[in-house]
Structure formats: structure tokens, C-alpha cells
Design a protein around this nucleic acid. Structure first.
Lengths: 202, 202
DNA sequence: TACTTTTATTTTGTAAATAATTAAAAAAAG
DNA sequence: CTTTTTTTAATTATTTACAAAATAAAAGTA
């Protein structure tokens, strides 16, 4: 028994599935999210569903009102989108700077594999999966630089932004941009990495 | 029956109480939060407690691990604190700019009353309450400018920062700073308001 | 017909009980 | 005596059942 079988809690799986549905547009803005129906869909009781809805609410993908229920959020306004880009850049530029020391060979390999997966999803035209791996790339950096604290602040901003560009920007450029960022990090070149990052976040 | 008796849901009351305990330092960092005990303390079942803990986790005040439970977060690192100040300024400067159009006489009156409450809490040396009203002041601006979307992003940052300066900075200056911000807004003077804001956020 | 009021239905909120997991304590082996 | 294994206790996760609230439908009134 050498293999480490990673167990993924049901609530995370459900949250993941719903995030995908919302980001992909399958669940349109303002769609009512009925607890009972979701419970049946995932084959669990309403308890875990409520947990997930609360989580997604705090992530900004869902809005909920007392005694009324939850529904899918609407896209950000233009100004809010602009502000979000600004903040996201600030956070991730911070991440780039602070990540250089902590970056080991293993970390770099992990990031290589993330990019490989990006490429693979792009080749197979799995754009929702591509988006999720895209987020994963950035999350890796943010977590390494600032831990869960920073991820906590950063994550809702990114998720909410993603609601806006639904399946736009699905060119090879996207993958290449991330390769350039990683190249900069690997060369310990903050300026290059930051420049590539700024190009990617928009 | 003319009076509008505002009903506050149990979960919000519990969340509020716990936030106070954490911000005031009554619940020290890394304190384990037992669901059963909390349920007994507030006289409810574990269901609502779980909801609140999940909420506070997303707000950054609490950390929770699967099958292990929740505990009070530890203060931010120095770098993270610095970054948080930067982001918070960015958001609230945005708020100042965007709030000028939307600001009505009624809104101004509401903000006056918030400052009155700040003064009163300061006079009575109720510093935890003072902190909460301080947050309320800024939240009012942020909400008016960017709605719940922006509050969602902003709130965890502020809460987390507050964990760091526990009951420092409890001088009359604090109240005055907010008066100056409001003066600037009232005069529709973005520059003055922003300058006052930057002094206040640190 | 248009409007209000009442009733019924649906949906969310809370409580209580059971299952699964983890941490602690006791027993066994080296 | 130390380490490992087994057993016990405590805690979280989930389900089920019930209570409260909101929406939808129906009945009554102008």
C-alpha cells in the first residue's frame, strides 16, 4: 500500500461542480438555486447543500436572502470589473515578489504540470476545465506567497471576474502567457514575470 | 402600529457576537471553537452554529479543517498587513470617487448618526463597540459605491486587519478623522475626502 | 373586473438523532 | 521503558423530522 488515495469531501465536490456550472454559464445569472433540487441532484441531504451555498455566497458566485433562498449572482458592473483587475494585479504582483525565495525545484515541477494540463484542456477544447486550471495556476502562486490568508482574499475576486468573460479568450495565447510567467519565475526575474502577469490579467 | 421592529436573524446575532469576541481578543488566536459548546452558549442547535462558523471562516476570522473543526485565526503577517492596507485604500478610494453622485441628504444624515454613535462609544470607553461602528462607517461608503459585490471583497480584508491592532488607537483622533472624511464628502471634495481617508487607514 | 383577504402549498430555518472520523487512552509487544 | 497496536471517547458530518416563513392560489368583497 504505497499509493496515497486522496479523499475529496463531498461538500468540496459539490462546490466544485456548482462553480463549474456557474462559470461555464450553464447556470445563468439569477437562476434560483433550490436546496431540495440540488440535494436530489447530488444524492445528499439538504445539510451539505446549505453548507455549499453559504460557501459560494461568500465567494460571490451566489447571493442569498434570509428565508428566501439563493440564486446565481449577476456579472460585475464595468467599474467593478476594472477595480477587480487592479486589485488582482496588486495581489499577484505581491505574490510574484514574495514567491521567489520560497520557490523550490518541486514547486516549479508542479507548475510545469499545471501548464501541461492547461495545454491538454485547450487541445481538447474543454474550456471550462481550462478556466479552472488557469485559476489553479494563479492560486498556486498566491498560496505559496501568502498562504490561505491571501487565497481567502484573492479567490472571491477572481471567481467573480470569471463570471464576466464566459468562454472568451480561449486562444493558445492564454497558455503561452502562463508559460512566460513561469519562465520569469524560474529565472528569478521579477520584472519579466510581473510584466507577463500584467499582460495576462485583464 | 407605526414602528418598524427590525428582526435580526439568530445566525446574524451569533455571528456578530463571535466577531466581537474575536476582534476584542476575548477569544484568543488559535482557540478551538467547539460546535456543541457554542450551541449551548447561544441556546440553539448545532445547525446554525455550523452556518456561522462557515461564514466566519470565509471572512477570515476562523480557520477550519475537514473533520477536525474550527479555531480562531492568527494575526496577519507584517507583509500581509501591509498589502491589506494597500488594497483597502484602493477599494475605499474607489468608493469615495463613486459615492459622490449617489450621496443624498438622507445618506449624509445616516453617516452623521454613525459618527455620533462612534463618539458616544468612545466617551463610554466601549472600545469593541467603537471598532464595530468604525467598520460600519466605512462599510456604508463601500456598499453605497459598489453594492454587496464590493462589500463582499472588502469585508474580509478589514476584519482580518482588525485582528492585528487590538484596542490600540482609541484616541479622539479616530473619531475626528471620520468627521473629516465626512466633511470632504459633504463638500463633494474628492481630494480632501481621499486625503482624510488615507490618514485613517493605516 | 379589480382588489383585498384568506387559505394552501412550497421552501427555507432549526432541532434532534445517527453515522463517520479523529483524537485520546489503554493495552500489548518489543 | 519505549513504541506500536487496539480500544474507547469525543467531535464533526450527515440525515431525518419538524417549525417558521414566504410565495402562490383561491375565495371573498367592492
Amino acid at each position: 500500500m504505497n499509493r496515497t488515495n486522496k479523499i475529496i469531501p463531498v461538500r468540496e465536490q459539490i462546490a466544485d461542480a456548482l462553480r463549474s456550472d456557474i462559470i461555464s454559464g450553464e447556470l445563468a445569472a439569477n437562476t434560483k438555486l433550490n436546496e431540495q433540487q440540488l440535494a436530489e441532484r447530488f444524492g445528499v441531504s439538504r445539510g451539505p447543500i446549505r453548507d455549499v451555498l453559504l460557501k459560494l455566497t461568500k465567494e460571490g458566485l451566489v447571493v442569498s436572502k434570509n428565508n428566501i433562498g439563493s440564486s446565481v449572482s449577476s456579472p460585475l458592473s464595468a467599474e467593478m470589473q476594472k477595480l477587480s483587475i487592479d486589485i488582482r494585479r496588486k495581489i499577484e504582483e505581491f505574490a510574484i515578489k514574495n514567491v521567489m525565495d520560497k520557490m523550490t525545484e518541486n514547486h516549479l515541477k508542479e507548475m510545469d504540470s499545471i501548464i501541461e494540463r492547461m495545454q491538454s484542456h485547450f487541445d481538447n477544447e474543454e474550456y471550462t476545465e481550462l478556466t479552472k486550471v488557469d485559476i489553479e495556476f494563479h492560486q498556486f502562486l498566491v498560496r505559496l506567497a501568502g498562504g490561505e490568508d491571501l487565497v481567502n482574499i484573492w479567490y472571491p475576486i477572481v471567481l467573480r471576474m470569471r463570471m464576466n468573460y464566459q468562454r472568451i479568450k480561449t486562444s493558445q495565447t492564454l497558455v503561452d502567457e502562463h508559460k512566460t510567467i513561469l519562465d520569469g519565475i524560474r529565472a528569478q526575474d521579477v520584472k519579466a514575470a510581473t510584466a507577463a502577469l500584467r499582460k495576462n490579467i485583464k
